[in-house]
Design a protein around this nucleic acid. Sequence first.
DNA 1: CGGCATCCCCGATGATACTG
DNA 2: CAGTATCATCGGGGATGCCG
Lengths: 131, 131
Amino acid sequence: MSTDLPQAHAASVPDVFDPTCSSRHALELIAGKWQMLIISALEEGPMRNAALMRRLGDVSQKMLTQTLKELERNGLVMREDKKTVPPHVEYSLSPVGRSLSETLLVLDRWAETHFGTLDAARERYDAERAK
Amino acid sequence: MSTDLPQAHAASVPDVFDPTCSSRHALELIAGKWQMLIISALEEGPMRNAALMRRLGDVSQKMLTQTLKELERNGLVMREDKKTVPPHVEYSLSPVGRSLSETLLVLDRWAETHFGTLDAARERYDAERAK
DNA sequence: CGGCATCCCCGATGATACTG
DNA sequence: CAGTATCATCGGGGATGCCG
């Protein structure tokens, strides 16, 4: 489905390195501090606001709401308000969101696997500049 | 999946959801606006400062230098100063950096594949709130 | 050419308190 | 419980000029 949007006219091939390409925007959408974690968390199943806060550990209510709203806006996250009293809102991944979460889980595992190497490199780097 | 107990004494298992775990730090290192693009670009081979600027399209000299320095500090990027006149500095991926770039390329491809879906969802979302 | 220093703006992030 | 409002802060990021 080739949308004839007013992109660059030679943008027949999507390229994240093209600043005018929407794919760049898509990448920046998940490039924040909480986006990847939220999506990874929701991969475990639908979650409520409080559950997400607990899962992420140190996210503020404001940032959680704000990021969720932006993810919902771009169709990655679905929000279901059960309209009960007290409120009950459930967040879950959309199909597109799920297609993304698979890759992000790989990223998570990369971080959990290699963080030691990074820590060591950082210490070495800092030590060399301290003297 | 131990979702029933907190990871108090189970700190032996790296978890990006644990704010005190270094893996979280590793994830945040690449969560910026330029990190993923820079690493993806360097996956194509060693590059000089000017070449990177051209490849990324709209990064400022300041942010490029700053991000490269942080990536080098954490051992993802290697910097080779040929110490010639005029200067010639080449950046390349370290082995760990290369292990990361593989996943990031998948992410790039995801963005290039699904950005249309995101654009459509965003338009729909905004239209619904405009009226 | 690569990159550091400086000034400056603004958005991202966050702590706190309040509301339906 | 979920979300908003407010205020304060921090750092991203651009512009410019200087240096080895």
